[in-house]
Design a protein around this nucleic acid. Sequence first.
DNA 1: CTACTATATCGCTAAACAGTTATACAATCA
DNA 2: TGATTGTATAACTGTTTAGCGATATAGTAG
Lengths: 127, 127
Amino acid sequence: MESLDDAAIEKVAEFFGAFAVPMRLKILNALRHGERKVGELTELFGCSQANVSKHLSVLAQKGLIGKSQRGTSVYYSIVDPRIYQLCDLVCLQVGERYAQQAQMKDMFLNVARAAKSPARKAAVRRG
Amino acid sequence: MESLDDAAIEKVAEFFGAFAVPMRLKILNALRHGERKVGELTELFGCSQANVSKHLSVLAQKGLIGKSQRGTSVYYSIVDPRIYQLCDLVCLQVGERYAQQAQMKDMFLNVARAAKSPARKAAVRRG
DNA sequence: CTACTATATCGCTAAACAGTTATACAATCA
DNA sequence: TGATTGTATAACTGTTTAGCGATATAGTAG
């Protein structure tokens, strides 16, 4: 990353920014096992449909998710499952940071275990 | 990451947020090969000392960097070099995203090559 | 003590953005 | 056509924050 100029650094920062909002992380989580329509996500999170839609736009605009209209519904899905490598790497480091708080530690370390298990790869199926 | 509750999700989001600001990425870049004092960073970036100091505070508060006062100067350094794994993983993915723009693509892919090279590990020395 | 240097913090402004409600748009069905 | 359903956008509010200059604080030297 050292050799990047200012424009590239900004792109990288924007990419990180896509993951820096809890609601967007929840959306990415929800898309782990396949596509979801907007209404499903809205109901799942119990927030406004407009909010979900806006975050989906952001994620789509950054190239993290793709959309597919079928009927009156729009289905969103992960473009590249490698983003979960990122998430799990972060979970690992955040988990260690909060190692004092037993409950949190366990949560994060469960994530770390799941990331190492080969069963995870099979879980990336499409709806 | 799936099993995380709202509080943990927020921690993860905050962690990503640390990397979501260009100036902070530049600072982390500058700390790759060892510690730096505030004045060095200020001069390096040509911005206000207050700004650098504030970003350093953010990074330190999130546990990404540590400080060591010696004389009237304060030296900051990376706590855990694994954060560069994150950065390089992101560079790789961002680079592919901008594969159309030849110049940018080259930059990012150089990063990817460097990340795979064993020579990189030796580069993590301390000033 | 004073003077000097280096860093941290304060006060501020402007911009970005997450969230809301209300409305517009698009696709299907009667 | 009109009605209905599902999604996107508009308009707005409040909060956050990156940036700056000015000031306060901490350490050193004389």
